[in-house]
Every structure is written in C-alpha cells, then in structure tokens.
Design a binder for these strands. Structure first.
Length: 350
DNA sequence: AACCGCATCAACCGCGACACG
DNA sequence: CCGTGTCGCGGTTGATGCGGT
C-alpha cells in the first residue's frame, strides 16, 4: 500500500503552464491570497492543476519581485559561502538573496556554479603544480646531486592551498581513518572545516580525543573560516557580519554554537551536545524563514539573518519538539524502508 | 537536413515536518 | 495520543534549445 497521492493525477493537467493558467492563478492570489490551502486553490479558480503545482508556479515564477538569471559575482560568493556552511539548504540560502528562489539557486549551482568552482580549483592545482615544478628545477640547478625526497607531491590538494583548511580531508584521512567518532552529532561540513584548520598545522601528535576537543573549540571560535574557502573566487563581501553565519552565541554564560535544532555547549574546552535526534546534521530546515512563503502568508520578515532565524527556530522548536518527536517516530514507522541519509559533506564532495 | 550531445530550467516526486481535530 | 491532511523542501526528471558534426 503506497502513499496516497495528493491529488487525482488522472484529472489533473501536468507539464508547462499556459499564459491563461498563469494569469488565472496570479490574479486570484493577488486578489484573495492563497487562503492557506493550496490543495483547494485550483478548484476555487477552476484550474485543472494539482495544488502543489500551483504553489510551485506561484512561488517560483508568478510571485512579485522574482528575479531570474543574471546572478552577480556577489551572489555567487554568498551562495558558495553558505553552501560551505550549511550544504544544500537552498531555501535558507535563498532567504539571503532577495528575489531569488530556492529552485533557481539550486539550478544555478548544479549547472554553473559548481563547474565554475571546479574549474577554478583545477586552475589553482595546475598553478601549484607548475610552481612546485619550477621550484624543483631551481633546486636541481642549485644542488646538482641533491635528490628531492620522494612523495613530496604525492597528492594535489583539492581546495585552494592558501587557505588553512585547504587540504584537510586528505591529510586527515592520511592520519586517521576513523572519522565517524568525530563527526558524530555534528554537521559534516563544519567538522570537516574545523578538522581542516586543525590539521593544517600538521600536528600529528594529537590523540583523537584531543583533536575532538580542539576541534570543538575551533568550531566555537573559528567557524567563519569556512567563509574564506572561496577566497579569491571573486570579490568576497567585505563585511562578513552581513552574511549569515553560525557565530557562537553567549547565552547564560555558555558559548553556544547553533546548528539547527541542535546546540553545542563549549565550556572550558570540553564539549557536549544536546540534540533532539542522533542524526549527524539534525534538522535545520526550519531555521531560515523561507522566502518562498508568499507575502500574503508572511509570518516573519523575509530577510532575516542566520542568527535571527536560528533564534526563532530555537524558541519555536522547544514548543513543538515533543510533538515532532512523536511525529517523526510515526513517520519512521510508516516508511520503514528509509533510504540512507547522506549529510552535506561539502568541502570534500563538491 | 538530420542527428547527437550537452546545457538549462521548469516541473514533478517523495518525504519529513507540521497543524489540527 | 493518534490519525490525517497539508506544507515545504531537496533531489530528480524531462522538455526544450543550441551548437557541433
């Protein structure tokens, strides 16, 4: 027994929208709003469309002040920076780019930005290779009989070398293969970022516990390193405070770093986490107020900072946490054959 | 002209979250 | 506490356009 369809697919038109359908939907919503029920909307207007389809059409295309294409360099930087921090949370990223939809940003990332980034990385790797090569030749000339030690250039770093977190994953994997204990209860990307910072100093003497503690401290103080991954990618916004960021917050004398519904206490170098569930990332989907909620339904200012939205999420999540836990367990029961959930492993997987 | 491969992007799908009776 | 309907999100698909051969 599968999931019940949201609408009668046989009697619903699919595919591209006609101008007539667009104008019907647009004029109705502009006049009456969505009425808080997308499913019932198409029947009211007389459209043979699924409610979800109407919602999507309105939010991604018909809604006022939508911008398509023509992403600026600054927008590129913001998207890349946020992707490093939070992964493919397109709605949150879109919340920081007025007029952009999550769908647009997602498409833009998948079709252009990702390639642009890879190309840049490739160029930098080549430049580094050339640099090392010329250095080699220079040394060879200087010391005729001197042999360079083998394995000096055994691996080309994936990330731009100039940043401390550049070759993190490679060095880490060389040193220690047990990553799971470190990533437990933390978003993969953040841990990756801090591990990178940590290992950039090549301190190979640290135990895993020491690394763990150190890493967590760095998360609290240095998370915004991640923003600099794209140094040189373009003109980075000069004022980073304008960007949403998981800055540590001082609450009740405890430095708290928020990751969605999960917070981490950093006290005297030791850390512990509080989380509603044991996933590696938790759920931050409720953090940012989605720009996709139309003006008619707006509950919060559309343009909120990451901190503001996080705080809001913390407040509201407490009220609904117990109920949601129940809901989650029910949903888990309902969908026993869950696909494995891959967290955002940006920094390594891009 | 016909075919092919690739890029783009609107639209769809399925799932977890959420709200409510 | 439970059942059910709806919303919002992120991943994926498929239609379309375009350039190259």
């Amino acid at each position: 027994m599968g999931r019940a369809p949201c609408c009668d697919k046989a009697n619903v038109k699919r595919g591209p929208w006609s101008p007539e359908e667009d104008s019907k939907l647009k004029s109705y919503i502009e006049e009456h709003g969505t009425g808080g029920n997308w499913i019932a909307l198409p029947q009211k207007i007389g459209l043979k469309r699924c409610g979800k389809s109407c919602r999507l059409r309105w939010l991604n295309y018909l809604r006022p002040n939508i911008r398509h294409g023509g992403f600026s360099e600054e927008e590129d930087n913001i998207i890349c920076s946020l992707y490093v921090i939070i992964g493919s949370r397109w709605s949150i990223i879109a919340a920081q780019l007025p007029g952009r939809t999550d769908n647009d940003i997602k498409n833009y990332w998948n079709t252009k930005l990702k390639k642009k980034l890879l190309e840049k990385q490739r160029n930098e790797q080549q430049a580094q290779a050339r640099q090392v090569c010329s250095l080699k030749q220079e040394k060879k000339r200087e010391t005729e009989n001197l042999m360079l030690p083998m394995g000096v250039i055994t691996q080309t770093p994936y990330w731009p070398q100039q940043h401390p977190m550049a070759n993190a994953s490679i060095q880490y994997s060389d040193l220690n293969s047990n990553q799971t204990s470190l990533t437990k209860n933390f978003p993969n990307n953040i841990v990756t970022a801090t591990m990178n910072s940590q290992y950039s100093s090549c301190d190979t003497s640290m135990t895993q516990d020491q690394l763990y503690t150190s890493t967590m401290n760095m998360v609290a103080t240095d998370t915004c390193h991640a923003l600099n991954v794209f140094q040189g990618f373009g003109n980075f916004p000069s004022d980073l405070s304008e960007l949403p960021c998981v800055n540590p917050q001082q609450i009740d004398g405890i430095t708290r770093v928020f990751y969605g519904s999960e917070s981490m206490n950093v006290v005297n170098g030791s850390t512990n986490t509080t989380s509603t569930e044991n996933t590696s990332w938790g759920d931050i989907s409720s953090l940012g107020y989605s720009p996709l909620v139309s003006d008619h339904e707006q509950r919060l200012p559309q343009h909120v900072t990451f901190e503001e939205s996080t705080y809001f999420a913390m407040q509201t999540s407490r009220n609904t946490r117990n109920r949601n836990d129940r809901g989650r367990s029910r949903n888990r029961d309902r969908n026993r054959n869950l696909k494995p959930c891959l967290g955002p492993s940006i920094g390594i997987l891009i």
